[in-house]
Write a protein that binds this DNA or RNA. Structure first.
Lengths: 206, 206, 206, 206
DNA sequence: AATGAATGAGATTTCATTCAT
DNA sequence: GATGAATGAAATCTCATTCAT
């Protein structure tokens, strides 16, 4: 009984903390860190002004820090788990999976990416090593993957590095468009995505 | 004599105004509009605190507005003049010109682009119509250009829209990398640029 | 059985109350009343934040009040009991007793004296009348005591008031040094104390 | 003309800074550092709330620090200059000068001493070395002075160290009484002072 | 008795802007 | 044109206290 009561309270506290982080994420993404008042965050979840210092004694600064770090961990985990699922499919379907994964992760964590993109100081908050190792892994993986497929005769022999850069650029472009809100992004709509993949795979045919 | 003095004054005033705009551009790009104090701008050019209101009676807000509008006009003019120079060259050289133009303009106005992409309010300051018409013109031009070359037998028949998207993505990716400072960008180094163009043109060969 | 439980509870409650008062005494003495947070007191004895209002419904203010009043009563009692023990000893031994009593009481209640001298409001909390009557009694007693000894030929005839002021000053000086922590105080070390008494008694010799 | 204008402004700024320091000194002495609101200081000299951060960017903390350091320097200077004036007078007049000097300096800087006495952290703000060297110099000087006078036959041979301690205690007692406001202090009134000196000198007679 | 999340009044601090010189 | 002291509204932050569990 008493344990249950305590758990209820703990759960409620956890909820409040979560609401705080989520609302801050939304507002920081929309108006920037400096452009978001602590008061606005508090009002957005009907919370008393002082409570934020109960959960984040360092105030707005700590809120941002925790927000970035926790979300960053989630993104890494999410991306890793998605990458494991890319198997021995035909090249067009591999591209489809890569593009869809990218679009889905971008969309899910759009606000975090917006913050990451806008706030210079944020980049000092995360373990850049971890990010770099991760990105580097991906950069090396794709050219190697293409070489194997070329060896198998599925695609032609070409400059696999440049092909990887091109692919990555398409994802980054998609990302930029979504972040700035200047369009829908070329990968969100299935038809567009198919068209792009079809164009690419045709060019790659042996 | 008196006229000369007045001219000196005018020139000095013009210089101060220019320094103000340039320093503000740098600081807004680095720390964001809300994250930059007027005092920091003043200190950066060793100017007294009150003087900014002499040059920009509307204060910080007007400084941003003027900064964006003047730079935006310059960018439009610059890009237009560069585009006129793309003539009847072989496809590889056309790509080279497009990429180099993009890189040079991005690099020159990097800070302005940073501000433009960070601050939501900024987009209300410029005549978005003008920007959109301009971008739209480019978007329609490139597929049409490719079709003509294909008809001339220089490249193969393909999905010209997707090719344009890919090209644009490479430029946007370059831009994103430069803006975030997370790398050098794939178009700034001549060798990398050549490699990418070579890869592309080879794929496009009939 | 039930009674025993209640007794246990009462005892524990008494212990908590005592710990609260003792920790508050230490912290108020160190950082002042305004400079001590209620939260700091609670943390210092690992107590939940709300509980202090169970023991002291008037909060921080009441804690100070009770603290001062209880300690003040103890001090008065302690000093009275010590004074009764000053009997018909030789003058040097009387001084020794007076000095040692002063040192011991100062040391034991140092924190309380620190609070008493720092906080202006504190003086309104205790029955100043009681304090004044007590001090006044001492002030009149010592010159009278000296006169008797002079009449008995133990010391010479002199200005007994000034002698009392001097003696009191030595105690106050000792107190001041201990309160500020700027030294050990001239009465705490037996050798120093003896030297001072010896100097005094020699000057007083008939 | 322009220089005069600038001087006027500088002088006025200096005045504001001075008023700020003086009012803070008074209020800190009266209500303690933690017990004094910044707002109260500002109101006391009819100053806008923000201005304090113009003069003392570190706020209340820096105000205290500067306040203590500047006053401490003044006290050292003042005391040194007064000590130089103690010449070859009869012993009673030397005591009179020492006591009067002490009383006058205590009275002039009473508020600073109150702050120094109350706030533990203040003692870390001043160069304790300097204070200690100064006090140490005084401690050694007085016994030596007494020895010389004893050699000259003006006073008897005795424990000069204890005599110095007694004298110092009388001044410290005076100081404590003034600081706590619990009385007038035994050295402020000429008659009392004379009585004390007379008592002392008579005891010291050879 | 005990807990610690929640409250909110009030404190400190920031910073764009004004204005006398 | 130039200065920087002064202003004060609005922001951030503190902390004694309340209250549901």
């Amino acid at each position: 009984m008493a344990t249950q009561k305590i758990n209820m309270r703990q759960e409620q506290a956890y909820e409040t903390r979560k609401k705080l982080l989520e609302s801050a994420r939304k507002l920081f993404a929309e108006n920037g860190y400096a452009g978001t008042q602590v008061r606005t965050i508090n009002r957005s979840i009907d919370m008393a002004d002082g409570l934020i210092y109960h959960y984040f004694p360092g105030g707005k600064k700590e809120l941002l820090q925790v927000l970035i770090q926790e979300n960053f961990q989630q993104i890494i985990t999410e991306v890793k788990s998605r990458n494991e699922q890319i198997g021995n499919l035909p090249i067009a379907e591999v591209l489809e999976q890569i593009y869809r994964n990218a679009d889905e992760v971008f969309t899910e964590y759009l606000d975090v990416f917006k913050i990451f993109f806008r706030e210079n100081e944020v980049r000092e908050l995360i373990e850049v090593d971890q990010l770099m190792m991760f990105i580097d892994g991906r950069r090396k993986w794709f050219p190697e993957f293409l070489r194997e497929r070329a060896n198998a005769g599925e695609i032609r022999v070409m400059d696999y590095e440049s092909a990887a850069v091109t692919l990555s650029a398409i994802m980054m472009n998609h990302f930029l468009v979504k972040i700035t809100g200047l369009g829908a992004g070329c990968l969100s709509d299935q038809e567009h995505r198919f068209k792009l993949i079809d164009y690419q795979v045709k060019l790659w045919k042996p």
